[in-house]
Simulated assay, not measured.
Amino acid sequence: MAPGVERIDWAAPWLQPWRAVGEPLAARIVAATADMAAAPADEAEPGLPVHAALSAAPGAPLRFVPQSDLPEGTAYEQHIFDTRCVPTRDNLHDFFNGLVWLHWPQAKRRMNQLQAQAIAAQGVGAVRGPLRDALTVFDENGALLQAPEPLWAALHARDWQRLFVDLRPLWGQARLLLLGHALMEKLVTPRKPMVAHVYKAPPAIESIANLDTWLAQALQPEPWATKPFAPLPVLGVPGWWSANQSASFYDDAQVFRPPRSGAAQR
């Protein structure tokens, strides 16, 4: 059993786009299937390894395999590109990575392709180049934000009072979709300082499948190497955390940091 999967709160607002697929998979990992629930402990079937549960998901875009299938000395991204197999450990981190592959297969393939191309051109060094670094940041902690322009202006200015208090009604027209599997893992135990690196998505695209296609096309080396993201403390999003109903929630400058002096705003 993957430690921590049983602690996922599928009622959390950030997990609603993932719940229909993710909750049944988590149940298969954690314990026996429902029809075995009443069986004696010595007769109950154990939960599935994470890789087996993900591979069995309907429409899985590639195979998930045990981490031991990754040959020693082979880069993880290169192995995925070459084999269409994702080495997967029995933990929360890799469970959420698998869920992202199931929901955003085109974007994940494109990120993997760009990683593999950079590895082929530059090799694997102690420090990633700008493009690989940006892709890794987004893969681990990224999100798409669809929002009216005034919210984006306030976010880029890091004017948190305007973003979350003055313009709070506009969040009813916004949608934040997580892609970063490390961020999703951390949100199993939510903490106020958690930040997503958000990328601007067109509000008119409603389905995740269409957003997936759009994002895969938007993933181009030159703009992405500049890290075209904005930091967003995710528990400040209205409706995502009960404590943020109070305006004083946003007074914490250690979380809602002012813009750096002299820093250019995108």
Results as ranks from 00 to 15, higher is better:
residue 1 M to A: 13
residue 1 M to Q: 06
residue 7 R to F: 09
residue 7 R to G: 04
residue 7 R to P: 02
residue 9 D to M: 05
residue 9 D to P: 01
residue 16 Q to K: 03
residue 22 G to N: 04
residue 25 L to R: 02
residue 28 R to I: 05
residue 31 A to E: 14
residue 32 A to E: 13
residue 33 T to D: 15
residue 34 A to W: 03
residue 35 D to M: 07
residue 39 A to Q: 07
residue 42 D to Q: 10
residue 45 E to Q: 15
residue 47 G to T: 14
residue 47 G to S: 11
residue 48 L to C: 04
residue 50 V to Q: 13
residue 52 A to M: 13
residue 52 A to I: 13
residue 55 S to N: 10
residue 56 A to K: 10
residue 57 A to F: 11
residue 59 G to Y: 04
residue 61 P to K: 00
residue 62 L to I: 11
residue 64 F to V: 12
residue 64 F to Y: 05
residue 65 V to K: 12
residue 66 P to D: 14
residue 71 P to F: 12
residue 72 E to D: 13
residue 76 Y to M: 02
residue 77 E to C: 09
residue 78 Q to M: 03
residue 78 Q to T: 01
residue 79 H to S: 10
residue 80 I to W: 09
residue 83 T to M: 10
residue 86 V to M: 08
residue 87 P to C: 09
residue 88 T to I: 12
residue 88 T to G: 00
residue 88 T to D: 06
residue 93 H to A: 02
residue 94 D to F: 03
residue 95 F to Q: 08
residue 98 G to I: 15
residue 98 G to A: 08
residue 98 G to C: 13
residue 101 W to L: 11
residue 101 W to Y: 15
residue 106 Q to S: 15
residue 107 A to C: 12
residue 109 R to S: 15
residue 110 R to W: 00
residue 111 M to W: 00
residue 112 N to F: 04
residue 113 Q to R: 02
residue 117 Q to H: 13
residue 118 A to H: 00
residue 127 V to C: 11
residue 128 R to H: 12
residue 129 G to E: 14
residue 130 P to H: 11
residue 131 L to K: 02
residue 134 A to Y: 02
residue 136 T to Y: 08
residue 138 F to Y: 10
residue 139 D to A: 09
residue 139 D to W: 02
residue 140 E to D: 10
residue 144 L to D: 02
residue 145 L to D: 06
residue 147 A to S: 11
residue 148 P to Q: 12
residue 150 P to H: 07
residue 153 A to F: 12
residue 154 A to T: 00
residue 155 L to P: 07
residue 155 L to C: 03
residue 157 A to C: 10
residue 159 D to L: 04
residue 160 W to T: 06
residue 162 R to K: 11
residue 165 V to W: 01
residue 166 D to N: 14
residue 170 L to T: 12
residue 172 G to L: 10
residue 175 R to T: 12
residue 176 L to F: 06
residue 177 L to Q: 09
residue 177 L to R: 04
residue 179 L to C: 08
residue 184 M to D: 15
residue 184 M to E: 14
residue 184 M to Y: 06
residue 186 K to P: 00
residue 186 K to Y: 09
residue 186 K to F: 13
residue 189 T to D: 15
residue 190 P to T: 13
residue 193 P to V: 03
residue 199 Y to E: 05
residue 200 K to W: 08
residue 202 P to G: 05
residue 202 P to F: 12
residue 203 P to I: 15
residue 204 A to E: 10
residue 208 I to M: 13
residue 211 L to K: 04
residue 214 W to S: 01
residue 214 W to C: 03
residue 214 W to F: 07
residue 214 W to L: 09
residue 214 W to Y: 11
residue 215 L to C: 03
residue 220 Q to R: 02
residue 225 A to P: 00
residue 228 P to F: 08
residue 230 A to D: 07
residue 237 V to I: 05
residue 238 P to C: 04
residue 239 G to T: 15
residue 242 S to I: 04
residue 242 S to R: 07
residue 244 N to M: 04
residue 245 Q to A: 11
residue 249 F to W: 11
residue 249 F to V: 01
residue 249 F to T: 01
residue 251 D to P: 03
residue 252 D to Y: 02
residue 255 V to Y: 10
residue 259 P to A: 10
residue 263 A to I: 01
residue 266 R to A: 09
